[in-house]
Design a protein around this nucleic acid. Structure first.
Lengths: 158, 158
DNA sequence: TATTGTTATACTCTATAACTATA
DNA sequence: TATAGTTATAGAGTATAACAATA
């Protein structure tokens, strides 16, 4: 005989077993939550995480070829073409023919694009404050360091 | 005047700036590499990370409703239906009508499903050894702990 | 011949809503 | 009316191959 007004408590409680010791599983869950946080913070901008990262990377490295930016972020050429087209349509990115190699295209932010990225620094800062809030200061630095270690240790050849 | 046989070194070298201090960005990159590792390790099985995690979770919690498993893994109902159908077709999962609530369905592993999951423990162990290889033992435990902290601190309401 | 980026196709994951059968 | 799961449709990301222009 269960209480009619509530679910049986253990019906919704799951045993995660070894999943709680699986780096891949925890990375996946953490990453999904990081996306949620991004969408919550960037609600007003219509921006997706991948798009905004592309804008930031172009801003830091103006004049680089589209393929170089794409490869660094593991975005496939076909997808990159469409993503950049959206950013061009939004007025944030400029494409320019490369004189030395006329097959390729170099990217840079428009004035609007740079202004947009600059303006989102505040949003980014708030996101970081929220991210840091569950950690002691040295713990946050530690997780960044360990993630970078994992990334460097598992480098792909491309 | 550049050497003709190589790209200019700095042409491919990008400044990542603050992205190297962004938890969200590092989580994303690390997670993509974790998927790569999974696919490399589970090459022979045709299994995807999400599918295998569902199998593991069902194995740990037989007889739970499909919706409970789905929600725990943030899989949307529509997607879950198709994923479970694939697992049923593969002979790994059994669906059973719930007597108390005939709208719902409970899940369990078939004997083949349980055998499959058990058999992949070796693959999983090898993956973990590879994951641990870049870390000191206490560092690996630390990254698991910190990821769990992040996950708990950013819990969604649902 | 090989490479850069584009186009086209397809498959998965995700999001949404409409539907069914229950409750 | 609300809920559990299904079906259907569409959008985004990804993978692949074919293509045009150029190297």
């Amino acid at each position: 005989m269960n209480l009619p007004l509530r679910d049986t408590p253990d019906e919704d409680t799951l045993d995660f077993g070894d999943l709680n010791a699986s780096l891949g599983f925890l990375l996946r869950v953490a990453q999904l939550q990081a996306f949620d946080s991004f969408y919550a913070a960037f609600d007003a901008t219509q921006m997706k995480p991948g798009e905004f990262t592309v804008l930031r990377l172009i801003g830091l490295n103006p004049g680089r070829r589209q393929g170089v930016i794409a490869k660094a972020l593991r975005i496939k050429p076909a997808h990159m073409t469409k993503l950049i087209q959206r950013m061009v349509d939004a007025g944030y990115v400029e494409r320019e023919a490369t004189p030395e190699d006329r097959r390729s295209v170099t990217l840079s932010l428009t004035r609007d694009g740079q202004r947009f990225v600059d303006h989102q620094q505040t949003t980014l800062k708030n996101l970081e404050i929220k991210d840091r809030s569950g950690f002691a200061p040295e713990e946050f630095d530690q997780i960044l360091t360990l993630l970078k270690r994992y990334i460097a240790g598992n480098k792909r050849d491309d």
